[in-house]
C-alpha cells in the first residue's frame, strides 16, 4: 500500500460521517448564522437587541447558574457513586453499573415526566407528606428552579459518573495502600493521594455536564413550567410564539459562542483532548 492509497482509504472511511455532519449539521448551523444577521434586516440589529434586552440577560444568567449548580450537584453525587463502584469490587458491581447506564434506555422526556408525577402539587411526594401529616398545604417542588435542578441533576448524573468512573478504575489501589503503609490515615490517603489522581475524571465529567446543561431543553421546559426560562427555551419562544426568527437565531449564535468560550477557558486549565477523548 502506497502513501496515496492510505490517504484515499482514510478519506473513504471518514467521508460518510463527514457528509452527514456537513449536510445535516454544519450547513443548517450556517443557515442559522445567516438568519441571525439578515432577518428582518441585514446587520447586527438582532445582537444589539439581544445585548439590550434585560430578559435575555436574565435568561443567560439563569442558564449558567442552573448549569453550574447541576454540575456541582452531579459531581458531588456522581463522585460517591463512581468511587463506590470502582473501589468496592464485589458481586454488586455489574448491577450498580447497569443502574447507572439504565436511564439511557429511557427517553429524557419520560424521565422528566416522571419527575412531574413525583413533584407536582398532588404528586407522590406532596401526597405522602400530607398524608403523613408533615405538611398542610402542598410544597412548591416544581415550576421553579428547584424542580428544574432536581430533574437536571438526575438526567445529567450518568454523564458525570461515567468519565469519573473510567478514570477511577484506572487508578491502582496500590497508591492508597502505599500511603497507608507509609503512615497516612484513611482520609489523608484519600485526599492527598487518591483525589488528585481523579481530577482529570472530575474535570471531564464537569465539562460534559456543564456544556450539555447549557443547551438543555426538555427538562427545564417541563419542570420549569414556563417560569424557569433557560436560554434554549427562550429561543423556542422567540421562534414558535413570536415568529421572531432573527432574534431566535441570534440567541443560538450567542449560546454557541458562550459554550465555545467555556471550552476555551477550560482548555487553559485542563487537557481537553485527554479529558474528553481518552478519559484517563
Amino acid at each position: 500500500m502506497g502513501r496515496l492509497n492510505e490517504k484515499v482509504s482514510y478519506w473513504m472511511l471518514v467521508a460518510p460521517a463527514l457528509t452527514i455532519m456537513i449536510v445535516f449539521y454544519i450547513l443548517p448551523v450556517l443557515g442559522i448564522w445567516e438568519i441571525a444577521f439578515t432577518e428582518p434586516t441585514t446587520g447586527v440589529d438582532n445582537f444589539v437587541k439581544m445585548a439590550e434586552s434585560s430578559a435575555v440577560k436574565t435568561s443567560f444568567v439563569l442558564t449558567f447558574r442552573v448549569a453550574a449548580i447541576t454540575t456541582v450537584g452531579c459531581l458531588l453525587l456522581g463522585y460517591i457513586v463512581a468511587y463506590s463502584i470502582s473501589n468496592f469490587a464485589n458481586k454488586f458491581t455489574p448491577l450498580m453499573l447497569a443502574l447507572v447506564i439504565l436511564p439511557f434506555w429511557v427517553s429524557v422526556l419520560i424521565r422528566s415526566f416522571s419527575w412531574i408525577v413525583l413533584l407536582g402539587r398532588s404528586g407522590l411526594v406532596n401526597d405522602t407528606l400530607r398524608d403523613a401529616g408533615i405538611i398542610e398545604s402542598p410544597l412548591r417542588l416544581m415550576h421553579n428552579e428547584f424542580g428544574v435542578l432536581i430533574a437536571m441533576i438526575h438526567v445529567m448524573l450518568p454523564f458525570a459518573i461515567l468519565p469519573m468512573m473510567t478514570n477511577m478504575r484506572g487508578i491502582s489501589d496500590a497508591y492508597v495502600k502505599a500511603a497507608r503503609g507509609l503512615g497516612a490515615s484513611e482520609w489523608t490517603a484519600f485526599w492527598n493521594v487518591y483525589f488528585p489522581q481523579t481530577i482529570p475524571g472530575v474535570m471531564s465529567g464537569a465539562l460534559l455536564v456543564f456544556v450539555l446543561s447549557l443547551g438543555f431543553y426538555v427538562t427545564p421546559a417541563l419542570l420549569g413550567g414556563g417560569r424557569v426560562l433557560m436560554i434554549s427555551e427562550y429561543i423556542t419562544y422567540q421562534i414558535q410564539e413570536f415568529l421572531n426568527w432573527g432574534l431566535g437565531s441570534a440567541l443560538s449564535v450567542g449560546l454557541l459562542i458562550a459554550t465555545a468560550l467555556v471550552l476555551l477557558i477550560a482548555s487553559r486549565f485542563i487537557n481537553l483532548r485527554s479529558a474528553l477523548l481518552e478519559r484517563k
Binding site: A174, R180, G181, V193
Partner: peptide, 16 residues
C-alpha cells in the same frame, strides 16, 4: 497499617 510504622516498597513502586 498507618499505626505500624513500617516502610514499604511495592511491586509496582506505587509512587504517587
Amino acid at each position: 497499617p498507618e499505626a505500624r510504622d513500617f516502610g514499604m516498597v511495592f511491586q509496582g513502586y506505587a509512587l504517587f
